[in-house]
Design a protein around this nucleic acid. Sequence first.
DNA 1: AAAAACCAGTTTTTGCCACAAACCCATTAT
DNA 2: ATAATGGGTTTGTGGCAAAAACTGGTTTTT
Lengths: 102, 102
Amino acid sequence: MSVRQIHQIHNNINRVVHEPVRLAILKILSAAKEVDFNFLLTTLGVTKGNLATHINTLEAAGLIEVKKEFRGKIPRTSYKITRTGRHQFQKYWENLKELAPE
Amino acid sequence: MSVRQIHQIHNNINRVVHEPVRLAILKILSAAKEVDFNFLLTTLGVTKGNLATHINTLEAAGLIEVKKEFRGKIPRTSYKITRTGRHQFQKYWENLKELAPE
DNA sequence: AAAAACCAGTTTTTGCCACAAACCCATTAT
DNA sequence: ATAATGGGTTTGTGGCAAAAACTGGTTTTT
């Protein structure tokens, strides 16, 4: 890769995906078929408020899907990666790799 | 990799390296032996102020080395990656890869 | 000679956003 | 009755990326 193309590359990095906590969420969702709030909470070790905002960001960008249902009387929210999310996640890595060390 | 270890991983991402513009700088410096301010400026397509602050961040973290000299009467500043910088850059990627899609 | 433009930055300002803490409201367990 | 759980929202703060303005000199233009 020519050094002259780096300009385009660092501008092509999707900032929604680039955030470490959101990267971790996408990684988890790309492997599991469906996870719930609590699982993400304990797995990631972040606060609830923090997790909720990251989830909102990912949903607003169309990268994940939120499903809310009741199990008896207890609410249960689970998350799935969307097809777009999978593609974006892949594309993000392809772009990022251009910035890897030689 | 077990999903249970993601907690550690997203916390191990070096935020100084993780910024896209700084990633691009490190990429350039890992390939070239020495570059100057203007080269980075035009290659990256950022503003001068922005570039200067990223450079300061990288220098403060010990990842790059700044050399100031005069070429005749014109000041010239050039940058090199340090040994630490090279190691950190490598290590950053090893950590990050744990968050790559399957 | 004066003005305009260039070089190589530094300083200041602005605005977003990650993160944490506190709050909320219902349910269930003790 | 009170504590704990589930799934959040609201609010507050600090840090940082990005741009604009400024600096101090040099070269070019008129």
